[in-house]
């Protein structure tokens, strides 16, 4: 039987969600001072970029952003094997005293975020780290939660949540495949 594909967010709904998330980031951080957006490779980087653009439009301030590839901080090298090509990690200057908002596409087990927290800690000591995700699909294996969520969706193991972004996939869309 071919898998069932349901669209959770189309392009317009995704834009609205990101717009709202940008406002929530501003509320959470109480402005843009000390704010950093850090996207997790690969699609988190694009999403962080979008949120930064919305903030820039509203506030007229360019928020520094970075990219984080957590591959080398994963705890499953043995079981899944090495990822063929590791993405770029680039942080905008010193983290000390900054409020870093991690941006990712999907929050599931929490293991990626755990790795991201470990990796950030090796770069410096931000005064605060928050988590912002486009989709929270439940299913956590670690005590980790998001501060800002674009869309919540109930899933079971075996489901896939596919986030597509214009810059990488040619269109904006979020699908649930089961």
């Amino acid at each position: 039987m071919p898998p069932d594909r349901t669209t959770l967010l189309d392009a317009r709904a995704m834009t609205r969600a990101l717009q709202r998330m940008a406002v929530e980031v501003l509320e959470l951080a109480q402005g843009t001072e000390d704010l950093l957006l850090i996207g997790i490779q690969r699609r988190g980087v694009e999403l962080a970029e979008r949120i930064a653009k919305f903030i820039e439009k509203d506030e007229g301030v360019e928020v520094p952003r970075g990219a984080l590839d957590i591959t080398l901080y994963r705890d499953d090298l043995e079981t899944v094997g090495p990822k063929p090509v590791i993405g770029e990690t680039r942080l905008p200057g010193d983290l000390a005293g900054k409020h870093a908002v991690i941006v990712d596409d999907v929050l599931y087990t929490g293991r990626t975020v755990r790795a991201a927290l470990d990796e950030l800690a090796d770069f410096g000591r931000p005064k605060r780290i928050s988590l912002c995700v486009l989709v929270d699909r439940g299913g956590r294996e670690l005590p980790i939660q998001a501060d800002i969520v674009g869309k919540m969706v109930k899933t079971v193991a075996g489901d896939r949540v596919e986030v597509m972004v214009e810059e990488v996939d040619g269109r904006d869309q979020v699908d649930l495949v089961r």
């Binding site: 080398l72 901080y73 994963r74 590791i86 770029e88 770069f123």
Partner: peptide
Amino acid sequence: RLILDTAEPFKEVSERPIKKVPAL
């Protein structure tokens, strides 16, 4: 090519304040 492409991001690791990742 796989080895050369994988080496690329490892260059950056040696430029970090803490030159170390927990991969191994």
